[in-house]
Amino acid sequence: MLDNIQLLFVWAPIINVQIILEGIFLGAVFALSAYGLALVWGVMNIKNLAQGDFVIMGGYLSLAFSQYNLSIFLILPLVMIIMFFYGLIVYRLMIRRVIDQDMFTSLLATFGLSLLMQQVMNLIWGPEVQIIDLDFPVYDAFDGFVTIPSIKIISLILAGMLSLGIVLFMKKSRTGQAIRATAQDPRAARVLGIDTDKIYEFTFSLNSAICGAAGVFVSVIWVLQPFYGITYSVRSFAIVTAAGLGNLPAVITAGFGIGLFEKYVGAIIGTAYEVAAPVSMLLIVLVFRQISMKKNRQAVK
């Protein structure tokens, strides 16, 4: 561990650049899927345990399209559209029926959905690890010490544009406003003439499309396997719980923060702890909140 700190800050400080870049790329993908989760959680109070599987499904769709030599700029919208309609179908068949039930029903239902999606993806694409290599150039910097694959930069820019689009959509458009109104108070929204069922439907489909986009980035940057969804689910949950619901800037900051934190923990303590990092960060946030909220707490007599 001491060796690693020396390496990072004394012998080869330049590799910090690489680690920070990797953390940012990682954070961008996390932030996307976490934002989708926050949306569904905040608006309809559904904790979607199949979140990571939606991401992986987006990745596999991207794999399917990449076999036709399509460019990523075409694959991304295609996958998002398909995933949007997939979300719509899932909502109509399943989510609509559990939305008014208690928390455990929706947890169980989405957990079941997660298992089902894993197995179906396993049947269609097989259990082997799949890779998409789009053959984009890799740039060097600092005498080859830092390498930046252009595909990661493209993904980062696309993810940024997408988040910006969603922010504007939520702020400016009528549907976006209706979503926010429904999240605040569904009954009042209904009284004011908002069809909350339609809003739920749209929100869930939008989440599915966002996950699809995250999946496309996962597929071109890392590897795909039908059972890897859980990693993305866990990280999304950690980010959303740490950042709070319905707070987009916080979700994005937390996404990048966790990405960087993970990479530095990996570099200093060892990769064995990389996955533990987001979870321990979540724990710290929860403990901190528990303590800071203490003064507001009162006993009922």
Partner: peptide, 21 residues
């Protein structure tokens, strides 16, 4: 001497160190 967790599909930190060392 790094250990890769089972659900990690990213070993860039290890490889960054490999590049330096």
């Amino acid at each position: 001497d790094d250990q890769l967790p089972a659900d990690l599909s990213d070993m860039s930190t290890t490889l960054t160190k490999v590049k330096a060392l």
